[in-house]
Nucleic acid binder design. Sequence first.
DNA 1: GTAGATTCACAGTG
DNA 2: CCACTGTGAATCTA
Length: 692
Amino acid sequence: MEGRLGQNSVPPSTSFDKSKILDVKPLRSLVPVFPTSPQAPPFVCAPPFGPFPSGFSPFYPFSGSQTSSDYNGPSGTTPTGPFPAPIRSFRRPPPEFAGASNDETASSMEGLNEDGFSEGKKRALRGSSSSQKKTRRSRNTELSLSGFKGKGFDASALVGIGDLQREDGDRDIVNCVLMTFDALRRRLSQLEDAKESTTGIIKRADLKAGNILMSKGIRTNTRRRIGVVPGVEIGDIFFFRMELCVVGLHAQSMGGIDYMITRGDFEEEPVALSIVSSGGYDDDTDDSDILIYSGQGGNFNKKDMQVADQKLERGNLALERSLRRNNEVRVIRGLSYSPNSNVKVYVYDGLFRIQESWTERGKSGANIFKYKLVRVPGQPSAFALWKSVQRWKEGFPSRVGLVLPDLTSGAESIPVTLVNDVDDEKGPAYFSYFPTVKYSKSFSLTRPSYGCNCQNACSPGDLNCSCIRRNEGDFPYTGNGILVSRRPMVHECGPTCPCFPKCKNRVSQSGIKLHLEVFKTKDRGWALRSLDPIRAGTFICEYAGEVIDKLRVSETREEVQNDEYVFDTTRVYDSFKWNYEAGLVEGESSSDCYEDYAIQDPLIISAKNFGNVARFMNHSCSPNVFWQPTIYEQNDQSFVHIAFFALRHIPPMTELTYDYGIAQSAQAESKNPLNGKRKCLCGSLKCRGSFG
DNA sequence: GTAGATTCACAGTG
DNA sequence: CCACTGTGAATCTA
């Protein structure tokens, strides 16, 4: 805990003058906060999605009542009044796209909880047989809907997707489809990891998962459209091309240009809908509102690296036509980010228009089409935010509001920045940074320890490994350290296991890997966010603090109740679905897909005096993080830790939140409903109003 | 040890 | 049913 700030003029957190620091209690709730920076003025919210002038409606080539004249200029999306807004605060447009079906769309959403998963699946709208068109079955795509086979059951009913939602999505449906995709992908990846390397069957769990969802109708926004895709917001991130397909943002699984044939005045012609800029070319410009995009084609015969002139056909022709028509084109930027530069993330960057096109002679001498795209005014720029964050991570000197470069004073292997660009407060109330959980000596919540016998690293599928056996035979993490499923307990290897410290079954004990940041909010005290994009299932941090002996809980009840920095497994938590749908995996029934997380031993941790970044995570009724008990042996005993994992993909700079649950005492004392509770400011549509 | 190159098995749409 | 579009992960190479 010694300050390592040395030459820095900023004092280490341990030497804060308490008297100068207000005792700020985090109000603990969430509204995403968008940073202001000198480089980028506050975003102007001119929502790509309205409010639309009355009479405005999106252009559909196949609907007779619309004409392309609606798109004759930026006026259709002119902001009605600029105001600073968090980048992710955009709300979907009123579902006027679906015509007069608003009511039905809304009512069918009631069964969805904040994760977009249906709790009452039975009442899901029954799909017609449209999705039952004969699906190609590659030899590897053989799968059975166990339990549903032959009953005429629409698989998409598993996740509550009706016909309407399949054609036109919204935020909840998009989330639901993405969560289903990733849960299935993780499971397939886990199954693949567990196989002998020579008999591998699923080399590409992402493609397989996408294929299953597409063929089962678990997808949305199948209606091809120009412009906004309902439910997808600027700044949303994706980690697989198939994710773009299943939410209808970009229908090509590989191709960079998505287009559709539309009926022009006299003849059919292609119109570009969306492009994925994968960064392979020197598309980069300093101005994040401009993108230079290269056409497709011209590389045949990859082996010899032979190239040919690109032709004005397919995607290139569509872009050319879209230049003339001046229609909006969705732009998805494929970016690779340090330090994991082999992982690519796709960022939805909003609507652009093609301003000009030309041909260029490429390095190899062949002609390449080039298109200049310009951002439709009034939209936030996800890419500009991305570039700012990159500069901050490189230690860009003049970041506004930077209070401390490392709040942990070196206690974590990666610095945690402390930022306040809201007011003058110099930091949160005093506490000692401690990276893990502290059990008191005489603590009873322990078990005798026993590790595995694996040399080197424990390998998935090895049932000789006792650590894996304790996880019901499943290796809890995928090869790149992503949690596969929630479960009552994750058993990790511990210090006495002979396997390497790099063993993949040590994810939650290896400390923080993300560049996290504690920041001041306008109305909810201090909060936590990440500068790095986060994949669903990524370990974020554990809840560090002092464990309160359960035998002493009653005598310290008062104390615990007034402690705002407390984590308590005995609270009442809303259940939610995160694991894969067993019905989508060959040979698995719903009992294989347990989602039980009742914890055996109650655990209460106070981070009031000792804690880590987790103590700054606020509550939300629509959280993006969840907790998962993990256990590993330590000094001949094993202790339960609370590990936090990303519930879904989380874009950079988005506040991290989890569900605090409701204290049982607060529930019982119903005389005063706000007793022990605090007003919730999470701003979610599904906000319960209070928490704690 | 790390960054770049190579290899391999693939899915959706026109 | 073919043509067309690269992708993501693992492995090899410099």
